[in-house]
């Protein structure tokens, strides 16, 4: 492939991934509302289109048409930048997530990842920790005590949980001997990391919840106490930006969990199905999305089942439980490597 082809292919991949993500985000909101309704024995949105299928678009248009209100005491520039950072971080992370093995289209061998970076995992960690700036900026620049409290809570929370998250990933990296997401996936072709290192899996999932500010760790938003937390003073499209980012982050978190612990596109019995090459690829891509969907469902399911933690409980859990557990996990993996070698 020459350089133009590479650019064209990359552009196609970007558009494809971006389109899928936006659509998924929109429908994720829809499903969140549906699942919430079901959990409460309700029906959920069903008025816009068949079974409410067009609800996300109605929501988007509503948000678009709303008046953009900026508080008088706000720092206007930072206030406007914050949601952009949130969106930027959320969408750029997708670049390194592989959704399937390499495929051969029109004679080109194309990897199903936008950017096959060899330190992809680090890239993800780096970007997600940038996400905290969006929230902190939003909280600070709004000029409201609720927002500020939300922003501060969220930075403390993210920093705390990033540590256990990083250490949990440590175990995965040890096993895969690579920082490349594709390598990590391929290393799980036989046995998923979730089974080899269950403690690491649990700490990672919990940290992922905390990093995405989802219940039971949605303290930065905490409606009852902080009105809306860092986005109290946001409206219209700026608010929508945060909203989108939250759901995009959920998708990334699910994709990361699938990639790191649930074998990416691999299924344990895939070879025994006897599928031919391209069918196998299709099957694998589907399996990736199914796994991701299941993780997303899990995210939503948890939200409507478990109440919010108190702030001190959150910190206790992060530092006194999750952090030591992730260390134990590394030792466990090290022991396994020692034994198998």
């Amino acid at each position: 492939m020459n350089i133009t082809e590479i650019i064209i292919v990359s552009l196609i991949k970007i558009v494809f991934v971006l389109g899928i993500t936006l659509l998924t985000v929109a429908y994720l909101v829809y499903f969140e509302r549906k699942i919430a309704a079901w959990a409460q024995n309700r029906i959920g949105p069903n008025r816009v289109g068949w079974q409410g299928i067009l609800q996300p678009f109605a929501d988007v248009f509503k948000l678009l048409l709303k008046e953009d209100i900026v508080p008088e005491k706000a720092n206007r520039i930072v206030h406007a930048i914050a949601p952009m950072i949130a969106l930027f971080v959320a969408f750029t992370t997708y670049a390194v997530i592989p959704i399937g093995p390499n495929v051969n289209i029109f004679g080109y061998d194309i990897s199903l990842v936008v950017a096959d970076v060899n330190m992809g995992v680090l890239y993800v960690l780096a970007l997600t920790s940038l996400g905290v700036y969006a929230i902190t900026f939003a909280g600070w620049s709004s000029g409201s005590k609720y927002s500020l409290l939300g922003g501060i809570r969220s930075s403390a929370q993210m920093i705390s949980y990033e540590i256990s998250m990083g250490f949990s990933i440590g175990g995965v990296l040890l096993l895969a001997e690579s920082l490349r997401p594709i390598d990590i996936v391929n290393s799980q072709a036989g046995l998923w990391n979730a089974i080899i290192q269950p403690i690491g899996f649990i700490t990672f999932v919990v940290s992922a919840f905390a990093e995405t500010n989802r219940l039971p760790f949605d303290l930065p938003e905490a409606e009852p106490e902080l009105v809306g937390g860092f986005h109290t003073e946001y409206s219209s499209m700026k608010f929508a930006g945060f909203f989108l980012a939250e759901y995009a982050n959920m998708i990334i978190a699910s994709a990361m969990i699938v990639t790191l612990y649930l074998g990416g596109w691999h299924l344990p019995f895939e070879q025994s199905l006897g599928l031919s090459g391209s069918w196998l690829t299709v099957f694998q891509i589907t399996s990736f999305f199914v796994k991701m969907g299941a993780m997303l469902f899990f995210f939503i399911w948890v939200r409507w089942s478990i109440p919010r933690f108190r702030y001190d409980q959150l910190m206790n859990l992060g530092w006194k439980v999750m952090f030591p557990l992730s260390l134990i996990n590394i030792i466990w993996v090290a022991v396994i490597i020692m034994i198998t070698n």
Binding site: I35, A37, W38, A39, Q40, N41, R42
Partner: peptide, 9 residues
Amino acid sequence: KNMIRPKFT
């Protein structure tokens, strides 16, 4: 369990 129960709406 509640998700698959009949709806009240």
